[in-house]
Computed example of a mutant assay.
Amino acid sequence: MTGETAHSLISKVEGWKLLNEGGVLKLNRTWKVKSFTKGLELFQLVAQVAEVEGHHPDLHLVGWNNVTIEIWTHAVGGLTENDFILAAKINGLPLHGLLRGKVKDSSTR
């Protein structure tokens, strides 16, 4: 996927950002969770969706309450439409009990 196409699709997945790491485009989103165990619960919800989709994001739990998810297609070394679909499905997960503050505001760092 070209950078231009990725920039046109990023608005479809609220809260996600485009990253360019060494020429590899990735989707990235960060949340603050209520506790370390709530972060693990969030990962479990994401894992269930990822298994169904057959598409597995990179999951990071930094400190005790900072969760970051990166999505990209390793096989092509960048983004595909499936990455945006997975991001949209993650956005649809019931995260209200896991996050600190408002869900809508959780994408800010």
Rank of each mutant, 00 (worst) to 15 (best):
M1N: 08
M1A: 11
T5D: 13
T5F: 07
T5M: 15
A6H: 09
H7E: 15
H7Q: 15
H7G: 04
S8L: 08
L9E: 04
I10T: 03
S11H: 14
K12F: 13
V13C: 00
E14C: 04
E14V: 06
W16E: 11
K17G: 07
L18V: 01
L18E: 07
L18I: 06
L19H: 10
L19R: 01
N20T: 05
E21I: 13
E21F: 11
G22H: 11
G23Y: 15
L25K: 01
L25C: 11
L25D: 02
K26T: 11
L27M: 04
T30P: 02
V33A: 06
V33N: 01
K34D: 00
K34M: 00
F36K: 09
T37P: 01
T37F: 10
K38W: 02
L42P: 01
L42H: 11
F43C: 03
L45W: 00
L45T: 02
L45Y: 12
L45G: 05
L45N: 13
V46P: 05
A47Y: 09
E51S: 02
V52S: 07
E53D: 00
H55C: 01
H55I: 08
H56Y: 09
P57M: 03
P57R: 04
D58H: 05
L59E: 03
H60I: 06
V62I: 12
V62A: 08
V62R: 10
N66H: 14
N66E: 14
V67S: 02
V67Y: 08
V67R: 00
T68Q: 06
T68E: 05
T68L: 01
E70Y: 12
W72A: 14
W72P: 02
H74E: 12
H74I: 11
V76S: 09
L79C: 02
T80A: 00
E81F: 00
N82R: 14
N82S: 04
D83G: 06
F84P: 03
K89M: 12
L93N: 14
P94H: 10
H96N: 12
L98P: 05
G101D: 01
K102Y: 03
V103Q: 04
K104F: 09
D105V: 00
S106C: 07
S107N: 10
S107V: 05
R109W: 07
